[in-house]
């Protein structure tokens, strides 16, 4: 079946980045306003699913040449590492630390180790959902 989906493809190229940027925003805003690693990760997944709908599996795989299993693994390691890093300072597992730090361009920002943990969550969510979708989609 041959369909003409030029409009969908063109729109997707724009919309993908909007959703993706929004997901990044939601991820970073998560600590103070609704959002966080789960929602951010799922939104990113949604964006990629949109790409998959508009184009085919091969094109998306070429455009995003990651092995998403490895993304999952990195995410898990990041989360576990953040949780375990407190052990180095002889404080109980999973104790988070935070401080206000001056960063160039951003000004005074609150930095929080929970953010790193949340990034781990984000990566695992993206990695495993995309793995599932890619493998199911690729099953002939």
């Amino acid at each position: 079946m041959k369909t003409n989906d030029v409009i969908l493809q063109t729109a997707t190229k724009v919309v993908f980045f909007i959703i993706f940027l929004f997901s990044i925003h939601i991820f970073f805003a998560g600590h103070f306003t609704p959002g966080g690693g789960f929602v951010g990760g799922l939104l990113t997944t949604g964006a990629i699913v949109l790409l998959l709908l508009a184009f085919d599996l091969k094109t998306v795989q070429n455009a995003l040449p990651f092995n998403f299993m490895i993304v999952t693994a990195i995410g898990l390691l990041l989360a576990l590492g953040t949780a375990a890093s407190s052990l180095l300072f002889n404080i109980p597992f999973f104790t988070h630390a935070f401080d206000d730090v001056y960063l160039p361009l951003f000004g005074v920002s609150a930095l929080h180790t929970a953010m790193a943990f949340d990034a781990g969550v984000y990566l695992v969510v993206v990695g495993s959902t995309i793995t599932m979708i890619q493998t199911i989609g690729g099953d002939s």
């Binding site: 998560g30 600590h31 103070f32 306003t33 609704p34 959002g35 966080g36 690693g37 789960f38 989360a79 576990l80 949780a83 999973f94 988070h96 935070f98 609150a110 929080h112 929970a114 943990f117 949340d118 969550v121």
Partner: peptide, 21 residues
């Protein structure tokens, strides 16, 4: 204690981080 504003998210990543992990 946790320097956050979104209680749900702070519970997820901080208070009950084990669950999330």
């Amino acid at each position: 204690e946790a320097a956050g504003g979104n209680i749900v998210n702070v519970i997820l990543v901080d208070y009950r981080g084990f669950d999330t992990l």
